[in-house]
Computed example of a mutant assay.
Amino acid sequence: MRYLLMLCGSVGDDALDTDITEPCRAWGEEMTRRGLRLNGMGLRPPESATTVRVRGGEALLTDGPFAETKEQIGGINIIECETREQAVEAARTHPWAAIGTIEVRELL
C-alpha cells in the first residue's frame, strides 16, 4: 500500500526555523535505501501559493494558501509499506515529527 506523509507545521513557529533540511535528506536517503520511499519533496512557503477555484465556469484565483490557518503543509513523502503500522513507524522516525506534525494517509 502506498501512503502520503504530509509534513505540517504552524506558520511562525520558531521550531520550524531550525535547519531541518539535512536530517530530512538523511531520512529520505535511508527510507529509499530500505525500499520504502518512492518520492518526496519540500514545498515553498504558503505565501507563494495560488489558489484556484472554478465557480460557474469562471476561474477565481487567489494569492496565498487555500485555508486561513496557522498550520500549513511544508512537504510530502510517498512511501510504500506492507501495513499502516509500518507507515506510521516511518513517520515516527522522520525528523519533522520532532518539530511539527506528520499526517499519514493511504493513497487510493
Results as ranks from 00 to 15, higher is better:
C81Y: 00
E71L: 04
R55G: 09
P45H: 05
C81L: 07
Q72T: 04
A98K: 15
D14T: 14
E106C: 09
R33W: 01
I76H: 07
R37L: 15
T18D: 14
G40E: 06
L38T: 05
A91L: 02
E103V: 07
E85A: 13
G75H: 04
G12E: 01
E89N: 11
E22C: 00
I99A: 09
T18L: 13
A91R: 04
E106V: 09
I99K: 06
S48G: 08
Q86P: 09
L16N: 07
G75M: 00
G12Y: 01
E47I: 02
T62Q: 09
G56C: 03
G57K: 03
E80D: 14
M6D: 05
E82R: 14
E47H: 11
A67L: 14
E71R: 11
M31E: 12
A59S: 15
W27E: 00
E58C: 10
A49Q: 11
S10W: 03
P23R: 03
V52Q: 03
T69C: 11
S10K: 14
G9T: 05
V88H: 09
R25E: 13
L36G: 04
P65D: 03
Y3V: 05
G57R: 02
R92K: 13
V11N: 08
P65R: 02
G28C: 10
A91E: 05
E47Y: 08
L36C: 12
K70W: 00
E29C: 07
L38H: 05
G9A: 02
R92H: 14
D19R: 10
E71I: 06
S48Q: 12
M41P: 08
P65T: 02
T18C: 11
I78L: 15
R34N: 14
K70H: 08
D63L: 04
G56W: 02
R25G: 07
F66Y: 13
P46D: 04
T21N: 11
T18Q: 14
C81Q: 04
L43S: 04
R84Y: 09
G35N: 06
P46K: 04
T69Y: 03
L5V: 02
I76W: 13
F66A: 10
G9D: 06
P23S: 05
T83K: 11
F66T: 00
T21R: 15
R33G: 09
M41H: 12
L36E: 08
L107R: 07
T32W: 04
G35F: 06
M6H: 06
N39M: 13
A15G: 07
E103F: 07
L107N: 07
V11R: 12
N39Q: 13
P65I: 01
C24F: 00
I20V: 14
L60H: 14
M1D: 12
S48L: 10
A90Y: 03
M6E: 10
E22F: 04
G9P: 10
E71Q: 12
P46R: 08
L60V: 15
G75D: 03
I102W: 07
G28F: 01
M6Q: 13
D13V: 04
R53D: 12
E22Q: 12
I79K: 01
P95K: 01
A26Q: 15
G56N: 12
G28T: 04
N77H: 14
L5Y: 07
K70I: 00
D19V: 01
I73W: 08
R33M: 05
G57T: 01
Q86L: 11
Y3R: 00
G12V: 00
E82M: 08
E103C: 07
Q72Y: 09
